[in-house]
Computed example of a mutant assay.
Amino acid sequence: MQKLEKYNFKNKAFALLSLLFILFFSSCEDVVTLDLEAGDEKIVVDAEIIWLKGTTGNEQLIKISKTAPYYNNTTPKVSGAQVRIENSIGDVFVFTEKEPGSYVCTNFVPVINMDYTLFVTAEGQSFTAVEKLTSVTPIDKIEQEIVPDFGGEDVIEVTYYFKDPADEVNFYLTDYQSDFLIFPNYELTDDDFLNGNEINIRFSDEDKIKPGTILNITHRGISKNFCNYMNLLLEVYGGSPFSIPPGNIRGNIVNASDSNNFAFGYFRLCEADKVSYVVK
């Protein structure tokens, strides 16, 4: 009987300690909102001129917004801006606001290796940037295979191939988009050790790629400077650099009157090949 009473006492003590343990860690699940200091509000210019192979490239879009506090669920749009691009032979392409913060041009003329200058006037500030339109070789083929992941589980891996041009330095940016990806997944490549050869780029996502999945692959040619900028973004934000504003990384968009008050974003011009692949 004494032994039974001792056992019951231990059980009661263990139960009490367990309850206190659960209550303690449950109290640790409360959401803590930090009082973060808001930085200076800045203009953000999302200016990608992308010329998809097989199109004229005449329709282009530039988005202008402002930075916002960390806990804001929306991005402030900038309306009433004046936006234009000029090429090196004097042609001017005007972008017209179609909805708040979105500026559209319908007569743009893309020319490989031509220099283009972006001009933006927004909220009393003038910004400018210069970049060259970079070419890209097309995707030759896409293959898939079953490979083991880090845990030894079999996953589907999709690989696309393209021929790198010889006797020139090339940089590439790939983005993958699919229903299972909240944001596009980005990957940078260069021809440092593969100049003039066939290059293959692989993509897998654990068990999320299944037969019937549609994977949209956009393969861009980019400049070395934009490659360096994107490399910094990917190091800081992982595979989704535009999931939050790149507030601490400076692009090529400068303020014409105050160099310290630059805009966030990068003006880039890319030829691209886009393929929609249905996983088998």
Rank of each mutant, 00 (worst) to 15 (best):
L4D: 15
K10L: 13
N11E: 07
L16C: 12
S18M: 06
L19R: 13
L20D: 01
I22D: 09
F24Q: 11
S27D: 13
E29W: 00
E29H: 07
D30S: 12
G39F: 02
I50C: 13
N58I: 13
K63I: 13
S65K: 08
P69M: 01
P76A: 06
G80D: 01
G80P: 00
N87E: 05
G90I: 09
D91K: 11
F93A: 10
F93W: 10
S102C: 07
S102D: 06
Y103E: 13
Y103F: 11
Y103W: 06
V104A: 01
N107A: 14
V109A: 10
I112R: 12
D115H: 01
V120C: 07
V130I: 11
T134N: 14
E143V: 12
V147N: 00
D149S: 10
D149P: 11
G151F: 08
V155Q: 07
T159M: 15
D167T: 09
F171W: 14
L173Q: 12
S178C: 06
F180T: 02
L181T: 01
E187P: 01
L188D: 03
T189R: 14
F193S: 07
I201C: 04
R202Y: 03
S204Y: 08
S204E: 13
K208C: 02
I214C: 00
I217S: 06
R220L: 09
R220C: 14
G221T: 05
K224T: 09
Y229W: 11
N231V: 02
E235R: 08
G238R: 03
G239K: 09
R250M: 10
N255H: 08
S259P: 09
N261H: 14
A263F: 12
F264C: 00
A272G: 06
S276F: 00
S276C: 04
